[in-house]
Write a protein that binds this DNA or RNA. Structure first.
Length: 420
RNA sequence: GGAGAGGUGGCCGAGCGGCUGAAGGCAGCGGUUUGCUAAACCGCCGUAGGGGUAACACUCUACCCAGGGUUCAAAUCCCUGCCUCUCCGCCA
C-alpha cells in the first residue's frame, strides 16, 4: 500500500511513477472520496464530543435524582445523526481502501525505465557455458530417458503441469533442498510455515485482491495454497511492533509452491519450467529502512552463491520498471544458462518492497527514540528447486546420455556421482 | 465431531450499564536515602489519529480479541466470527 500522505501531497509524482510501471488509474474519484472521508471524520468527532459531555450530565442528574428528559430527547437525535454519518463514513473508507489495495508499488530511482523484459538490464555474469561436443538435449528428454522424471503418470494422477520424480530424480530434488538450506543456515533462521493461508495473509504480500486467479483456492475454508513461502514468512510479524535492536531479521523456508498459471496456457508446456506445484527455498529479510538496499545486494549474493557452488553459469538482471512485480520497488532476477533450451531462465527473483507490504501488514519497529515506523521487507528465492534440477540435467549431461552430479551434492546423494 | 470455560495495558490480575483509559501488583523510567549493591520511600509510566505549541503544556476522538446489535450512554447486556484452555470421541 502506498503512503496516503504522499498521494495527498504529491499526486503528480505518484502518477508519473506509476506510468513508468505500466499505467496509472484515475484518482479523481479517490480524491473526492478522501476529502469527504476527512470531512465526515471531523464532524463525527465533534458530535461525539457533544454526546460524551451530555452523557456525563445525564449521569450527574440521575445521581441527583433529577429529571434528564430534555437532554435525553436531544441526544436521541444526535445519536441518530452520528449513526447516519458513520454508515456513510464506513462506505467511503472501505471504497478508498479497496482502491489503494489495487495500486502497485512505486519503482526505486535506480530501476531502469522500460516496458518489457527486453528492457531489463544485465548487471553481471558468472561462469561459462559448458562446452558440449554434442547437441544438447532438453531436460525432459534426459529425465524421461533416465527414468527420473515421469510427466505422463503425473498427468494421470492430477493433470498437466505436474511431475512425478522417481528414484534418483526425487533424491536429487531432496539433495538440492538440503544443500540450499544448509548453505544459508548461518545467516537465515529456518522455518516450516503453514502451506495454506487465509485471505488477509495473501493481501499483505500483494497476491490479493488483484491476482486471485493465479491462486489455488480452498472453498470450504476460504483459504489459499501458497504460491511462494514469501506469503507465510512475511506474515509472521503481521500487526507487530518490533524493536530497532531486533532488526534485521533473516528467515528462510523450504516449501512447495502452488500456482494456477492462468494466462500462460501454451507457454513452457513441456518439462519442469512451469509447473502448478514446485519446490523452493525462500529467503526473507525484515530490515531498517535505511539499510534495505544494502540487504538487497547481499540477498542476491546469497542466492548467487548456490549457483556458484553448483558451478552453473548465470547472469543477474535488474528488472525494468515495466517488468517489476506489483509489490516490488526493485527486483534482481538471477537467470541460469540452459543449454537444452539455448537460453537463460529465471531461478531466483530478489526484491525490495520497501514499506509497501509493511503498510498492508502493519509491521513496524520502535526506534531507540520511541517513535514507531514502518520497516522494509525483502525476499528472494534461494533458489527455485525444480528449475535448478533443469539446469543440472542440461548443463551436466554427457554424450552417453548420463548426467554427472555436481560435487557439492554428492554427499547429499549418498555418494552417487552420476545418474545413468 | 460433542460438552464446558475463557480472551482486559510489557506481564499478572480486578472490574457495579453512567463518576473506568480502566483498581491492585510485577517489570520499566526518574528521584530521595545509601561506602557499593540490595531494600525502603516519592513520582512517572498504553497506542493511534485530529486540533494546538517554537517545542512542551493543553485538548478532542477512537481503542478492554474482531465485527455487528441494544441504549441518551457498553470493558460491562445480546448476536456472529477468530483464538486459547479442559473433558469426551476420532485420528497421523
Amino acid at each position: 500500500m502506498l503512503d496516503v500522505k504522499l498521494l495527498r501531497e504529491n499526486l503528480n509524482l505518484v502518477q508519473s511513477e506509476l506510468n513508468k510501471k505500466g499505467g496509472a488509474p484515475s484518482f479523481d474519484r479517490w480524491l473526492q472520496q478522501d476529502t469527504r472521508a476527512r470531512e465526515l471524520k471531523v464532524k463525527i468527532e465533534e458530535l461525539r464530543a457533544r454526546k460524551n459531555k451530555a452523557s456525563e450530565q445525564i449521569a450527574e442528574k440521575k445521581r441527583k435524582k433529577e429529571s434528564a428528559d430534555s437532554i435525553l430527547e436531544e441526544m436521541k437525535q444526535v445519536a441518530q445523526q452520528v449513526t447516519e454519518m458513520q454508515s456513510e463514513q464506513v462506505k467511503v473508507q472501505e471504497e478508498n481502501r479497496q482502491f489503494l489495495l489495487t495500486l502497485p508499488n512505486l519503482p526505486h530511482a535506480s530501476v531502469p525505465i522500460g516496458k518489457t523484459e527486453h528492457d531489463n538490464v544485465e548487471i553481471r555474469q558468472w561462469g561459462n557455458r559448458p562446452s558440449l561436443s554434442f547437441s544438447p538435449k532438453s531436460h525432459w528428454e534426459i529425465g524421461e530417458r533416465l527414468g527420473i522424471l515421469d510427466f505422463e503418470r503425473a498427468a494421470k494422477i492430477m493433470g498437466a503441469r505436474f511431475v512425478l520424480y522417481q528414484g534418483l530424480g526425487a533424491r536429487l530434488e531432496r539433495a538440492l533442498i538440503n544443500f540450499m538450506l544448509d548453505l544459508h543456515q548461518s545467516k537465515y533462521k529456518e522455518m516450516i510455515p503453514p502451506y495454506i493461508v487465509n485471505r488477509e495473509s495473501m493481501q499483505v504480500t500483494g497476491q490479493l485482491p488483484k491476482f486471485e486467479d493465479d491462486l489455488f483456492h480452498l472453498e470450504a475454508e476460504d483459504a489459499f495454497l501458497i504460491p511462494t513461502a514469501e506469503v507465510p514468512l512475511t506474515n509472521i510479524h503481521r500487526g507487530e511492533i518490533l524493536s530497532e535492536e531486533q532488526l534485521p531479521l533473516h528467515y528462510m523456508a523450504y516449501t512447495p509452491c502452488f500456482r494456477r498459471e492462468a494466462g500462460s496456457y501454451g507457454k513452457d508446456t513441456k518439462g519442469l519450467i512451469r509447473q502448478h506445484q514446485f519446490n523452493k527455498v525462500e529467503l526473507v529479510i525484515f530490515s531498517l529502512p535505511d539499510q534495505s538496499y544494502e540487504w538487497l545486494e547481499r540477498l542476491v549474493l546469497d542466492a548467487e552463491e548456490v549457483l556458484k557452488r553448483l558451478n552453473l553459469h548465470y547472469r543477474v538482471v535488474s528488472l525494468c520498471t515495466g517488468d517489476l512485480g506489483f509489490s516490488s520497488a526493485k527486483t534482481y532476477d538471477i537467470e541460469v544458462w540452459l543449454p537444452g533450451q539455448g537460453q537463460y531462465r529465471e531461478v531466483s527473483s530478489c526484491s525490495n518492497f520497501e514499506t509497501f507490504q509493511a503498510r498492508r501488514a502493519d509491521i513496524r519497529y520502535r526506534t531507540t527514540s520511541g517513535k514507531t515506523e514502518y520497516l522494509h521487507t525483502l525476499n528472494g528465492s534461494g533458489l527455485a528447486i525444480g528449475r535448478t534440477v533443469v539446469a543440472i540435467l542440461e548443463n551436466y549431461q554427457q554424450a552417453d546420455g548420463s548426467v554427472v552430479i555436481p560435487e557439492v551434492l554428492r554427499p547429499y546423494m549418498g555418494g552417487v556421482e552420476r545418474i545413468t
